[in-house]
Design a protein around this nucleic acid. Structure first.
Length: 488
RNA sequence: GUCCCCAUCGUCCAGAGGCCCAGGACGUGGCCCUUUCAAGGCCAAAACACGGGUUCGAAUCCCGUUGGGGACGCCA
């Protein structure tokens, strides 16, 4: 039997990092086990669901590279994949359970229930449905039906206990005494979550239910439904939640929680998945930096730890940086392109004739970039005609004693070089420094300001070489003017 | 209030009775490299929540306490 897993988000918000990790675990499991990854949209709550949210979630999954084998857009044998299109089936199941006396009609109104609940909370503190309608005789039911009273359907919870072996937590047991007769079909005829998940998971032949820890307490209710339906149980794996730095469940007030915010923020999906995968799971040993294929190869539900995990943005940054450094050149170029375009620094020849040069420039910034857009920002001086000079830098390095003469000497030295490569340039600069009795450092700093406008850049000789002799000499001349003007 | 889950450095993990006076990573501090900033290398500080058992031996097993989280809806 091939494993079938599913990710079943409700489109009441964008894909957040917690949901993303749940999706990732499902996807990893499917890929690892040669199974099928199903995407099902749980839009039972029409009030809070919207098409925009559905698209948002799909975008998030696509960005992460978590392609689904069955689901929205692509369909599949077990569709439809929108829960709202499966209500008839849910109603059938509910009706069947009523017919089999495994569920019953409940005519209690929401008002009555909340009053009872409020009263109970005053005294005992806890409340469980009192089974008023469970005790109704056939005659009483018939008269209520005749009166067309609104009624919901409740599941008749039998006495006993339910236990299951959770793949991450091990055996978990619940006493039915703590489970009330829960509603499976609302009085408006729509199913509740408990019914629709089970019904759909059964129909979609889901073999492994991998979802958040917060569903543990729903599991016994759902198992009861599986049994009542006469369906085989899937395996359950409840993965721990992701918490904010304050140890509270991650939410908007913790900052970015939508995965698309990270996409826009210059993060690599491979870094995100690597980071998310290791939040609560470990391949064992000390391995941390893993490619997507390595994650798939190493993944096992059993390796997921039981405790909640705190989201650590600094570590995400580190993963991003590491993956940035390992990205293939053409891949990097492609990913960086949008931000170069946005900065007005893009030219198609960077993927054509100037490809080698462009890749070299990018390589200079790899160890310095944390996000994708850092490349465009930090390398800007390579792509503009007129530099913006940092005033303090100009003051400190360009207006140092005798610097103008030193620059003239450097220009001459550069002009006479056979090849304008880093090694030759460095040798030339150092010999000028020697000859003029100044420290090479002072010339290096001055040159850096001259060609980049700033005090911070990649290694100067690499920068000069890639800038090319003509532009370097041009900027040298410009720098001398800048150094001269308003020099006090 | 009831039920459930969890408990190793600040954070994420390793550890499945002796290999552990506990290992890796992020972060932090220092040093090295060095033309700046990074990256990289080296070093350091930093944890088995507590109390009982079981055992020749416990971070690892059991019980309790405490702490944290989650669930208790005609939401999902």
């Amino acid at each position: 039997m091939i494993p079938r897993v599913r990710f079943a988000p409700s489109p009441t918000g964008y894909l957040h990092v917690g949901g993303a990790r749940t999706a990732l675990f499902n996807w990893l499991y499917a890929r690892r086990a040669g199974g099928v990854f199903v995407l099902r949209i749980e839009d039972t709550d029409a009030e809070r669901s919207s098409d925009a949210m559905v698209e948002g979630i799909l975008d998030g999954l696509r960005w992460l590279g978590l392609a689904w084998d069955e689901g929205p857009k692509i369909g599949g044998e077990h569709g439809p994949y929108f829960q709202s299109q499966r209500f008839d089936r849910h109603r059938d199941v509910a009706a069947r359970l009523v017919a089999e006396r495994l569920a019953y009609y409940c005519y209690c109104t929401p008002e009555e229930l909340s009053a009872k609940r409020a009263a109970a909370e005053q005294t005992t503190g806890g409340w469980k449905y009192d089974r008023t309608c469970c005790a109704l005789t056939d005659r009483e039911i018939a008269s209520r039906e005749e009166a067309r009273m609104a009624r919901a359907i409740r599941f008749r919870v039998p006495e006993g206990t339910t236990r299951f072996d959770d793949l991450v937590h091990g055996p978990i047991e619940f006493d039915h005494a703590n489970i009330e007769d829960f509603v499976i079909l609302r009085s408006d005829g729509l199913p509740t979550y408990q019914l629709s998940v089970v019904s759909d998971d059964v129909d979609m032949k889901i073999t492994h239910v991998v979802r958040g820890d917060d569903h543990i307490s729903n599991t016994p209710k759902q198992i009861l439904i599986y049994r009542a339906m006469g369906a085989a149980l899937p395996q359950f794996a409840h993965v721990p939640l992701i918490l904010g730095p304050d140890k509270k469940r991650l939410s908007k007030r913790h900052g970015a929680t939508s995965v698309m915010e990270y996409a826009r923020g210059g993060y690599l999906p491979e870094a995100m998945t690597n980071f998310l995968a290791l939040l609560g799971w470990s391949p064992g040993g000390d391995r941390e930096l893993l490619t997507r294929d390595e994650l798939v190869a190493a993944f096992a539900l059993e390796g997921i730890s039981g405790g909640n995990a705190v989201f650590n943005p600094e570590k995400l940054d580190w993963f991003n940086q590491q993956h940035l450094m390992r990205l293939a050149p053409d891949e990097l170029a492609l990913r960086v392109k949008p931000s170069f375009e946005a900065a007005g620094q893009w030219r198609d020849e960077f993927l054509g004739d100037r490809r080698a040069w462009f890749f070299s420039v990018l390589d200079l910034f790899r160890p310095r970039a944390k996000r994708l857009d850092d490349f465009a920002a930090q390398s800007r001086f390579f792509f503009v005609d007129t530099l913006e000079y940092d005033a303090a830098a100009v003051e400190k390095h360009l207006r140092a004693t005798d610097m103008d003469e030193h620059l003239v000497a450097l220009d001459a030295a550069f002009a006479s070089l056979d090849t304008f490569d880093p090694v030759s340039i460095e040798a030339a600069l150092r010999s000028v420094a020697d000859a003029r009795g100044v420290k090479a450092g002072s010339l290096i700093h001055a040159m850096r300001v001259a060609v980049t406008g700033k005090t911070v850049s990649p290694g100067l000789f690499d920068v000069l070489s890639l800038l090319g002799r003509a532009r370097v000499r041009q900027r040298l001349a410009e720098a001398r003017r800048v150094g001269a003007t308003s020099a006090s």
